[in-house]
Design a protein around this nucleic acid. Structure first.
Length: 270
DNA sequence: AAATTCTCCTGAAGGC
DNA sequence: TGCCTTCAGGAGAATT
């Protein structure tokens, strides 16, 4: 599944192929994603130029004229640059560039989405209330500590709340909590300032590392050229229930928080 | 207001 | 070998 570093990597991968180029045509094969793909998309974007791309959390923005195309890859979405138009199962949308290249959205589980945001609107509800970027200077231990004050919500749920910090998913929440030595089910108000500092630092460190390596954690991630991620972060706790902790040798445990699985080392995390 | 539960979807993995 | 069940998850919506 595309996590924030994957989305960043995808963006960097496709940018040279589509930035500054004119859109010849848009083909929607399957409009039923998490939200319906706007019917008027082909009409709105044909002939326009993709000016630039950027990322907000796990959302990608393709800035086009007066507005932007907002993309989310959900659980299983990929963006690929292709030269062959032949489409297959789970290919949902193509953006055909004037030079013949094709940007294709493929997403078996269809948890992703595509929106058009005209600049006349003030942003979009999906990104307007996102918290700070985890790699920005606004995301600090002090900030986390302040946010967690008086809240009994588990710290992991806090980390995964996009309104608090943008784009941290289950895997990174688990891994960073391990690095910071904090149990995922620890109530936010009980996490000390020093722990929050370590946590914020761990978040930045892990994300930066993943991005710098060309980004990926995960099993089935492929980059924009379709090659498997050549780098795989050693996950220290995620998905390793009943295996030994690489740091202390104790058995890693799994617990359920809401609808999500959490993993932790009972010795290394308090 | 805060916290929890529900929802969409398909593929992988497990059980018999 | 194959079918059926269970689980996984991003994140907004709905509910408590």
């Amino acid at each position: 599944m595309p996590e924030l570093p994957e989305v960043e990597t995808v963006m960097r991968g496709i940018t040279p192929h589509i930035a500054g180029k004119r859109i010849e045509k848009i083909i929607v094969y399957q409009p039923r994603l998490r939200w319906p793909v706007p019917e008027e998309l082909p009409r709105l974007l044909a002939g326009q130029t993709i000016d630039s791309l950027d990322r907000r959390g796990k959302y990608l923005r393709l800035h086009i004229g007066k507005g932007f195309l907002l993309l989310h890859l959900g659980m299983s979405g990929t963006l690929r640059i292709l030269t062959n138009i032949a489409a297959g199962l789970h290919d949902h949308l193509d953006i055909l560039m004037a030079d013949g290249l094709i940007l294709r959205l493929h997403d078996p589980r269809r948890f992703g989405s595509v929106h058009w945001v005209a600049q006349t609107h003030s942003g979009h509800p999906l990104i307007n209330h996102l918290g700070p970027e985890p790699l920005s200077k606004d995301f600090t231990g002090e900030y986390l500590h302040q946010i967690g004050r008086g809240r009994k919500l588990a710290i992991k749920n806090l980390l995964m709340d996009g309104r608090i910090v943008a784009g941290l998913g289950n895997i990174y929440a688990n891994e960073t909590l391990f690095i910071a030595g904090i149990r995922p089910n620890r109530a936010a108000f009980q996490v000390t300032r020093a722990q929050c500092d370590r946590l914020a630092q761990a978040v930045k460190q892990v994300l930066k590392k993943a991005i710098s390596k060309g980004g990926t954690t995960l099993r089935d991630f492929t980059n924009s050229e379709g090659k498997p991620g050549y780098f795989r972060i050693e996950l220290q706790v995620y998905g390793r229930a009943s295996q030994e902790c690489g740091r202390c040798g104790n058995v890693i445990r799994k617990l359920r928080q809401g609808q999500r699985s959490s993993f932790f080392c009972p010795h290394c995390q308090k």
